[in-house]
Nucleic acid binder design. Structure first.
Length: 843
RNA sequence: GCGAAAGUGGCGGAAUUGGUAGACGCGCUGGAUUCAGGUUCCAGUGGGUAACUCCGUGGGGGUUCGAGUCCCCCCUUUCGCACCA
């Protein structure tokens, strides 16, 4: 029999915390603040699985411990509730997405509440709530005022399956990263946000963030700043010039040809009659291949291209070099034209060797007949650059070009402006109108929120317009300022919009007169610890930083960055079972025979592999089941005990029972299993020598305290287990020690800790008890074990007093029988002594 | 192909950052308690060996009195980027 009834204990304390508003956000300003935030979830129809609470439990431990340490803690939860899945579900079931969303939120909240997470639920918010999205629209007005929102006819990523466009960040290898649906290029008029205007600050301010190094690198790469030069190439017999962008102007003397992208606007003008047919054929050929094909083939495919018939003049040495057209040059990056230096660029080298173009070495260091050399080195064959290294040569040649009006320093970015409209229903309507003369203007703040109109069908119209085109009466409106007839925008904002600023709305979610209270913002911002998945490294986290900087420029927030410290929790996986036809099986439908898995019914072999939990793969574990069987505290402990928070691990329900046994032992230290009364094991003070128990206590306090800071909570739990194991061995333990332990256990296992705390006579919640301090002196031992090595191999151990003198330790080491045996009478050449650790005798 | 991270018992993972490898948990083996256990308690549990001992942190070299930890080469896995000039 388990020792305690988790069902009644969980329910009892959850009720009590809610009734007494135990975790209401403090309003005093006398204590230091700590804002700990989880990435809020999209409330999907599938509900929660045990992967979700991993991050939430970690932040809950931090929040609860910080409160006990004397911080005012802001800990909140909300819903990223606009988005595609609800809309698709709505189409399928013919139910309004709002109803579906409400239903899903109720499920999520119910599941979350069973975990005993210490959220201030009075601050709950949902991005699809008009009280919330009014302010999302309001921020768009700010972006407009700053000239950062505009409409443009652009080549977009259009996903036919979804009937909507997608942002660059949402597309990879020609498919939508969420669903795998193919994406094609189309020219459409869209809302754009000028995130590129913030590119430098988005890179430079990364330096001040305590974020995972990988995520910082990904953001830098995504923004992709390249510093180089624009260089003008004149052409024989025309006044046109070709401008190229290069990061290696120092290799200009090695430039042996120029390449234009097939779409480059000068291609037509410069192609000679003799080459026209070949060039036209090539352009037709490359134009036929979709963006997707060109992406997937990418780097390994042999390079293709044709000569235009025209020569360009290399500005540094006046040499005539041919102009080619090739699709390895992208129209959309830089100027759509490059000068090629095959000796020092791998792509150019591949192209030049294929088409027999000359390779001229200008940087020493490699063998350019064999491969391109891209490293640093002394310049040669480069006139006034000879002898310089890459950096010096770049500076010198840029200055040289600038003096002669042939070039200038230039910075380019991989980052493009953010495509901000979607042809969907379930999102924020734009607070904009278009007048009958085509003028687009934003509505005044007083006209907000622009409420999403009711529809009963959510598909795009039959002629391909967005779902909101169905809201005929809603679209027709008047300019509130002039009364002129106007049309509303039928696009909606992308799902990222709401999550770009929710951390600010949590500061004062009940206020309808402001987006957030300025005083609250000054006190609470920025977010001290932000925990969520690494899949948002270049999406949400980049967009949110961008908005935050705009709000900073508007004087609406006082920090440059929203999230001071970021942590990614690893994903929980579980083996799935699949037969050759791709059918998945639940784990109770298969069995292991020898080393292979068979489907129980068909006896067919099934393949097993560890995958991300997903309803469609039949490998989800529901936290409700864990709470039913083991209790919330056992689940919480296991979520964190599994391994380092940042790493992904396989779920093992057996591990939950191990955590439950730990709590059972904890319980039995205080409560008699038979009677349910006090165990009689808790004493007024130590009996005899209990320094081992005391040391285990202080070690646990130390590790848990450090773990709250470093989020290394798995080892913190291990040390708490050591303490309980020590106590289990003792006949009595001081009550005071046990209570100190309960306090450090309480952030992890709050229900059991509260219950025991109360049974020990406390009238107030353990969550309000002060955090115990550990004593370094109590961690020390009187006698320590010293390892004795001969030639670096362990040959024995000796126990000595902790303060034993070196000479005594060495003497004891030499006298150790095993050691004597291995020394075999040989003279000792060297004695290494590491204080308190080991002795190594070298012969 | 480029970049980053990681490879430790049957399994999840520890290891004071160069100092006794395998903490803690799961699983397993034996014993005790129990009418009965998916109970609890005790003992054991990296591999080989009867033992002395030997071998062991993906593989191979190296530095060092001493390497899971540092250096070089290689292999594997995961993630990110993928002709960005």
């Amino acid at each position: 029999m388990p020792s305690f009834d988790h069902k009644s204990i969980d329910a009892r304390w959850q009720d009590r915390w809610a009734r007494e508003r135990t975790f209401a956000t403090p309003t005093d300003r006398t204590r230091p603040k700590y804002y700990v935030l989880d990435m809020f979830p999209y409330p999907s129809g599938a509900g929660l699985h045990v992967g979700h609470p991993k991050g939430y439990t970690a932040t809950d431990v931090v929040a609860r411990a910080r409160r006990m340490m004397g911080f005012n803690v802001l800990r909140v939860m909300g819903w990223d509730s606009f988005g595609l899945p609800a809309e698709r579900q709505a189409e399928k079931e013919n139910i309004h997405p709002r109803i579906i969303t409400e239903r899903n939120i109720a499920t999520f909240k119910q599941q979350l509440s069973r975990l005993g997470l210490s959220y201030d639920w009075d601050r709950e918010l949902a991005t699809s709530d008009p009280r919330y999205y009014k302010w999302t629209q309001w921020i768009l007005l700010k972006l407009w005022e700053k000239g950062l929102a505009y409409q443009a006819e652009v080549a977009v990523n259009f996903c036919p399956a979804l009937g909507t466009v997608l942002a660059n960040e949402e597309v990879k290898d020609g498919v939508y990263i969420e669903t795998g649906d193919p994406v094609e290029r189309r020219l459409m008029k869209q809302w754009m946000l000028r995130i590129t205007a913030y590119a430098d600050r988005l890179i430079d301010d990364l330096d001040e963030l305590d974020w995972p190094a990988g995520t910082l690198a990904m953001q830098r790469e995504w923004i992709g700043r390249s510093i180089g030069a624009n260089v003008d190439f004149a052409m024989a017999g025309t006044s046109d010039v070709i401008q190229v962008f290069t990061t290696r102007p120092d290799t200009l003397f090695g430039g042996t040809y120029v390449v234009l992208a097939p779409e480059h606007k000068l291609v037509d003008a410069i192609t000679t009659p003799a080459q026209r047919a070949a060039v036209e054929a090539y352009r037709a050929e490359t134009g036929k291949r979709s963006e997707r094909d060109r992406m997937t083939e990418a780097a390994d495919a042999p390079k293709t291209g044709v000569f235009t018939g025209t020569m360009a003049i290399n500005p540094v040495n006046g040499v005539e070099i041919p102009i080619w057209v090739a699709d390895y040059v992208l129209a959309s990056y830089g100027t759509g034209a490059v000068f090629a230096c095959p000796a020092h660029d791998e792509r150019d080298w591949a192209f030049a060797t294929r088409f027999g173009l000359p390779i001229v070495e200008v940087v020493k260091g490699g063998d350019v007949a064999q491969a391109a050399y891209v490293g640093d080195g002394a310049h040669v064959n480069s006139a006034f650059l000879d002898g310089l290294d890459n950096d010096d040569a770049k500076d010198k040649v840029i200055a040289w070009l600038a003096e002669r009006g042939k070039g200038e320093r230039s910075v380019r970015y991989r980052l493009r402006d953010w495509l901000f409209s979607r042809q969907r229903y379930w999102g924020e309507p734009f607070p904009t109108i278009e007048l009958d003369d085509g003028t687009v203007k934003v509505l005044p703040e007083s006209a907000l929120p622009v409420i999403l109109p009711e529809l009963d069908e959510f598909k795009p119209t039959s002629d391909g317009r967005p779902p909101l085109a169905r809201a005929v009466d809603w679209i027709r409106t008047a300019d509130p300022e002039t009364g002129r007839p106007a049309m509303r925008e039928t696009n909606t904002m992308p799902q990222w919009a709401g999550s770009c600023w929710y951390y600010l709305r949590f500061l004062s979610p009940q206020r309808d007169d402001v987006a957030w209270d300025a005083e609250e913002e000054k006190y609470w911002m920025n977010v001290d610890l932000y925990v969520g998945g690494s899949e948002h490294a270049t999406l949400h986290l980049l967009y949110a930083r961008f908005w935050h900087k705009v709000l900073f420029d508007c004087g609406l927030v006082h920090t440059k960055e929203p999230f001071a410290r970021l942590f990614h929790q690893g994903m929980i996986h579980k083996p799935s079972f699949r037969d050759t036809r791709g059918r998945y099986y639940y784990d109770d439908e298969v069995e292991k025979v020898g080393s292979t898995w068979l489907a129980k019914e068909s006896r067919e072999p099934v393949e097993t592999r560890s995958e991300k939990m997903s309803k469609s793969k039949y490998n989800v574990v529901n936290p409700d089941d864990m709470c039913d069987e083991y209790g919330a505290d056992s689940l919480r402990l296991y979520e964190l005990f599994m391994g380092p928070l940042e790493e992904g691990t396989d779920w093992a329900t057996d591990g939950v029972s191990g955590c439950r046994r730990f709590l059972d032992r904890t319980w039995r230290l205080a409560v008699d299993d038979e009677t349910g009364g006090p165990s009689g094991k808790l004493a007024d003070g130590p009996s005899g020598d209990q320094r081992d128990v005391e040391r285990a206590l202080h070690q646990a306090i130390k590790r848990v305290s450090e773990g709250v800071e470093s989020l290394r909570l798995n080892v913190a739990i291990a040390d708490m287990m050591v303490f309980v194991n020590e106590c289990t061995k003792s006949t009595t333990i001081p009550k005071d020690w046990y209570e100190q332990f309960l306090r450090i256990l309480s952030p992890f296992a709050p229900h059991v800790a509260e219950e025991l705390w109360e049974r020990l006579g406390h009238r107030t919640s353990i969550s309000a008890a002060p955090w115990p301090a550990f004593d370094e002196a109590k961690l020390k031992r009187d006698t320590i074990t010293i390892a004795i090595q001969v030639q670096g191999k362990l040959r024995g151990t000796i126990d000595v007093a902790a303060d034993a003198a070196e000479a005594d330790v060495l003497a004891a080491a030499r006298a150790e029988p095993k050691v004597v045996e291995f020394l075999a009478g040989k003279p000792i050449k060297r004695e290494v002594y590491v204080k308190g650790r080991l002795v190594n005798l070298v012969v």
